Computed example of a mutant assay.
Amino acid sequence: MAEVSAEARLEAPAEKVWARLTDFTAYGEWNATHTGFPRGGPEKLELGATYTENMKLMGFPAEVLWTVDEFEAGRLLGVRGKGPMGVVVGNRYTLTPDGNATVVRIDGEFTGAAVSLMAGKLKDSATAALNESLRKLGGLVA
């Protein structure tokens, strides 16, 4: 298993950050690993919603079938997905209001036989992508 996380304080209220975070039509504007939604994002963002995302991590393209497994509107979005080579991916986005700003934390995990072969490199690449994503998200909501 490889676990990664990143956190940033964004100078915007949680409602504005949540709106941008869950706007799947503009997901690629901030998410550093996203390359497309072949069939669009989830029709309705709720527990059990599913959608397919095309991504690129460590230079490799991947298609992940996501399922929303944690959801509290405006505060928490957790997704778990199945990718290529038996890899299971999880992402958890947590928003915590901090005055007029919002602390955004992203926790990710990767499991599967293929992960153990490249865990160190995967952690470095995924952590860099999370930090880049938070930087871009912060620029869009400020």
Rank of each mutant, 00 (worst) to 15 (best):
E72H: 13
E3V: 15
Y27I: 08
F60D: 04
L57Y: 03
A126Q: 12
V88D: 12
N54T: 11
S125T: 09
G139C: 09
R92I: 01
G138E: 02
P97L: 05
V141H: 07
Y93H: 14
F110Q: 02
A114I: 01
A14C: 00
L21E: 05
L134N: 08
N91Q: 12
L122V: 07
L134K: 08
L117I: 04
Y93M: 07
G120P: 05
L130Y: 15
F24Q: 02
G78E: 09
E43G: 15
A26S: 15
G41M: 11
L57H: 06
M58H: 02
N131V: 01
W30V: 01
A113Q: 00
S125H: 09
T25I: 03
T94Y: 00
K82D: 11
T25V: 07
K121S: 12
W66T: 10
T33K: 10
V141I: 08
G28A: 13
A129R: 04
S5Q: 09
G48V: 03
K82Q: 15
D98F: 02
G59N: 08
W66G: 08
V17T: 10
T111G: 00
N31T: 04
V17Q: 07
T22C: 05
R20N: 03
A8N: 01
G28I: 13
Y93G: 05
L76D: 00
E11I: 04
P13G: 08
A14L: 02
F110A: 03
W18V: 01
V103H: 12
L21I: 07
A8P: 02
A73I: 00
A6L: 03
D124Y: 07
P42T: 08
E63I: 04
F24G: 01
S133Y: 06
R20E: 02
K82S: 13
L77P: 04
E132V: 00
R105G: 05
K44H: 06
A119R: 14
K82A: 14
V89W: 15
E63Q: 12
A119D: 09
V115A: 11
G90T: 12
D124M: 12
F110V: 00
R75K: 13
T22D: 05
G36A: 03
E63G: 05
A142W: 03
T25C: 02
V87Y: 06
E53G: 06
A32C: 06
E53Y: 07
